[in-house]
């Protein structure tokens, strides 16, 4: 088990390393460099030279990669082209905000998805299921920005219950984001609930049709005992991975939502850095998002392994 864990972690580190190589070479292959991109028409003469020395672009690509990568390991992501600030500090605030949004959406979304998914599956083809399934389809198919705009229209413009956009600055403490953050949370929770719910529903339906659930019924196990002891422990295994994907999606910065609500998260920083042609920042955010994906999926696989006796005991035996 420990060996397995070590192997998976090692594999994750290798993946992140490869991704960092790809990101770095991707930026290298682009015509020009961070300075020409940032300075645009003024990229000539002394200005360009100064910029290059300042960002260390006058060294070889391999030296710069090593510098960048070893810095990243230590938590130093370099300096932004715009304003020459420490990227780590810039990203730190944004990451905190993204985490806040993601955590709130998860706290609302996951229990809701599990509950509604199970209710829907247990009442398969009955009114409750039809209503839940229809709403799910809507939540999945209507683009987020449309939902977001509608919510702003209803709850902010018409009813005036909550502010429509976020005006708090990126570095503000968590408490100041309420109640502005409520609408973004609602939209995100809706989308993720829909995705997770569908997996939960089909997984529970499949498990309900299994031989062992039929056996439990024919053993005389009362209905709710059957659901909680025989159905759910098995049905929820495949949802772990879907939840992980959703978490990774949330942490990677939800660009559209952040833009609509003017929320100072990682996604919007990414967009801003691209439009500012700030390559060092873009590069750093890409690496962070990739690391989050790898870490979250690794965590999901380990959880699945812990929750599934088949995998767990198979690993112990080896």
């Amino acid at each position: 088990m420990l060996r397995m864990l070590a192997r998976r972690v090692l594999l994750g580190i290798v993946t992140v390393f490869l991704v960092s190589l790809i990101i770095f070479s991707g930026v290298e292959i682009l015509p020009g460099d961070a300075c020409t991109a940032y300075l645009e028409r003024e990229a000539q003469g002394k200005l360009l030279e100064n910029c290059r020395t300042e960002l260390g672009l006058d060294r070889s690509a391999s030296a710069r990669y090593l510098d960048w990568a070893s810095g990243a390991v230590r938590g130093d992501l370099g300096v932004s082209a715009t304003g020459r600030k420490s990227i780590a500090t810039l990203v730190g605030d944004r990451l905190k905000n993204t985490l806040l949004l993601a955590a709130c959406a998860l706290v609302v979304g996951i229990p809701l998805a599990l509950f509604l998914g199970v209710v829907s599956a247990l009442n398969r083809d009955r009114p409750a299921d039809l209503i839940i399934s229809t709403l799910t389809i809507f939540a999945m198919t209507i683009p987020e920005f449309v939902t977001a705009t509608l919510l702003i229209l209803v709850f902010s413009v018409w009813l005036g219950w909550v502010p429509g956009i976020v005006l708090t600055s990126a570095g503000a403490p968590v408490s100041e984001f309420f109640p502005e953050i409520l609408l973004p949370i609602a939209v995100l929770a809706m989308v993720m609930t829909a995705h997770i719910l569908r997996t939960v529903r089909s997984s529970v339906i499949e498990t309900m049709a299994s031989d062992y659930v039929q056996m439990a019924v024919l053993k005389g196990v009362p209905y709710w005992q059957m659901v909680f002891r025989h159905v759910l422990p098995n049905a929820l295994l495949p949802t772990i991975n879907v939840v992980a994907l959703t978490v990774a999606w949330l942490l990677g910065g939800v660009v559209v939502i952040e833009t609509v609500f003017n929320y100072p998260g990682l996604g919007r920083m990414m967009i801003d850095s691209i439009s500012d042609r700030d390559l060092p920042v873009t590069q750093a955010i890409a690496l962070i998002i990739a690391t989050v994906y790898v870490a979250v999926n690794l965590l999901a696989d380990l959880l699945t392994m812990l929750a599934n006796p088949r995998l767990r005991t198979a690993q112990i035996r080896h």
Partner: peptide, 15 residues
């Protein structure tokens, strides 16, 4: 009481 056809699939895998 029932003794099912395929016990491998009739025993709950997580218990």
């Amino acid at each position: 009481a029932l003794i099912p056809q395929n016990s491998g699939q009739s025993l709950t895998p997580t218990r």
